[in-house]
Design a protein around this nucleic acid. Structure first.
Lengths: 340, 340
DNA sequence: CCTGATTATGCAAACCTTTTCATTCTGGGT
DNA sequence: ACCCAGAATGAAAAGGTTTGCATAATCAGG
């Protein structure tokens, strides 16, 4: 049988109340007894029973992390950050993968809600109304999405702007955007920034190619549309789409970046494995996980809602590599003829 | 306040014992009452308090998953499989990322051991002696490693054999192996298989290039050694190394597969994103996660150790793509001269 | 119609900890 | 020398559930 607080109390010659206090509120007990208790604790190898503690305090020392897909390194990085900070603060983390399925997301959140102190929802796919219900169940922090006044961590929305400035500086005047899933908050966000830039810079022609699955295949689809659009640069919703673009363009005999420039988002590891290396927006994903965890824990520990001191917005970085270059002189140099 | 078993009992007009039995051992209660209780349960939205249950049963309904690196999609896939099965069986899963650091691995296992029913250790990096200590703390299942009589799931060791047969069928007679980390159990395993094949097929010359970091950079390192070795085919410890090989070979003007064939292990998603596509061994990683979870749960539920009926070994598959081809006629056709 | 076996249900203890309240002890101020 | 404030400690309740034991109800066999 495991060693309980009783064993420690008996061994140390004090009451169980004293042992409990010595461990959880050390200042309420005399130094001498505290030290005596502590030495017995280590000698016997006593570990408080989390269930018994949780039963009475109502706290579990656990947080839940809800993510769309563990297999996606993007979310793996976020999870790693969350996990790292939670462990440092003495919390354990339950993980809930919902396989990109909003209904599973609901189920998982509801089943976890009762057994954790708080939840981090990363890139939630639920509708606003469902999200409202879910976030009312238990203290929640959102990552990659803003909703009402639920605390959240998002990436700086300046990424798209930087990309477009980079491309116009290279002389591109016709730029296409290969978007991600309609229901993605990030996609909508980027699309807006894309449009806004167009309104502010009338000289640049901006073309939305539509929505594509956020994977390699989506990029392959988008490539032919991009080519037909006459754009000399294509911004992809994420690196995977950009990779698909790259591959299909090569297949069609279009050279990157000489004829078309390509930019991705995320800076996944593989963007340096391909040729040309991908110019992309680096999002500090692990750091997002860390901050989400910090924010949640500060909310849990503080009784008042004074946790606004933590910055909610993370800066992103443009990483220029080989896939972007000067705009070609002839705007439609993509065909079979080499001279105009 | 949350709704407790008392509320349900009162509402249903039965005792709390009956409610408890209706939920946890339905066959011990009359059908009519069980149904009545169930309807009240859903109406009130009652969820048993896991702490209270755990306190008395000594079971937490939780398993721990210990993995080297969440950010690595290989382990993400395993985690996904574990998570999927655990959730289906009503278990939650704690995740513990130890950042490839054996000492953190120990710490995490020890801290988790007291609060979970069992643990799955995926690709443990600890030494045998430490692993012995850790696995004695709590029911454990090992993935990707065999140790003493601890239940484990590993991949079929026939992968290397298939690769070598594939390559010899293509006419390769000088084959190199770019290995992974020394302490990796998989690496040692593959290296052995590589050697054995050589002893059985005296006509083939097999060259071990050494150990490399299991990432892109490791492959870049290995490339020059491979070239110098005169091998016409290189088997890499994993796909990342293979990708590094591919990139460096292109840089040095060596064409794949015309001059050198490359094979990886793992079939990570990116192996289809590069040109030439990578020939590789597909390891059903998510399935490994599922089976590890099933095995652990069956051990936890069965009082006797009769869980040997679950297969412990997963078949792997050779996926032939573009990076392997016929051996060049001239064994050293890697130079600048095109004719011998 | 009665008896004994079987099934269904209720009562109460037990799980281990935290925390309120009461008690004892210490020491400083008068 | 006395009293009182404050600190240190102990006793006991509470938290929600499971489960062994006892009781009540049902039913088949005689």
């Amino acid at each position: 049988m495991a060693v309980t607080i009783r064993d420690v109390a008996k061994e140390a010659g004090v009451s169980i109340s004293t042992v409990s206090r010595a461990l959880s509120s050390p200042n309420k007990v005399a130094d001498a007894t505290r030290e005596a208790v502590e030495s017995v604790v280590v000698r016997l190898g006593y570990r408080p029973n989390k269930n018994a503690r949780g039963l009475i305090t109502g706290r579990s020392g656990t947080i839940g992390l809800i993510i769309p897909d563990l297999e996606n390194p993007y979310f793996g990085a976020v999870s790693k950050g969350v996990q790292e900070r939670a462990r440092a603060a003495g919390y354990s983390v339950y993980i809930g993968d919902f396989d990109e399925d909003p209904s599973i997301e609901s189920t998982v959140v509801r089943s976890l809600a009762k057994q954790v102190d708080g939840i981090i929802m990363c890139s939630p796919r639920s509708t606003d109304v469902e999200l409202g219900r879910l976030t009312s169940l238990v203290p929640t922090v959102l990552a990659n999405r803003k909703f009402a006044d639920v605390p959240s961590i998002v990436f700086d929305n300046g990424g798209m702007l930087r990309v477009l400035r980079h491309l116009t500086a290279l002389g591109h005047t016709t730029i296409a955007y290969a978007g991600g899933p309609e229901q993605s908050w990030s996609h909508r966000h980027r699309s807006e920034a894309f449009q806004e830039f167009g309104e502010a810079h009338g000289t640049t022609e901006l073309i939305e190619l539509g929505s594509f699955p956020p994977n390699f295949g989506g990029g392959v689809q988008a490539a032919d549309l991009a080519l037909a659009s006459g754009a000399t640069a294509v911004v992809a919703y994420n690196d995977l789409i950009a990779l698909g673009l790259l591959d299909r363009l090569r297949e069609r005999g279009v050279s990157v970046p000489e004829q078309i420039s390509i930019v991705g988002f995320d800076n996944v590891a593989v963007s340096t494995f391909v040729r040309p290396n991908l110019t992309t927006i680096d999002q500090p994903r692990k750091h997002m996980g860390r901050m989400a965890a910090d924010l949640l824990l500060s909310i849990l520990d503080a009784d008042d809602a004074e946790s606004t001191h933590i910055p909610r917005q993370l800066p992103v970085d443009l990483v220029v590599r080989q896939s972007t270059g000067e705009a070609p002189l002839s705007r439609r140099a993509t065909g079979t003829t080499t001279a105009s």
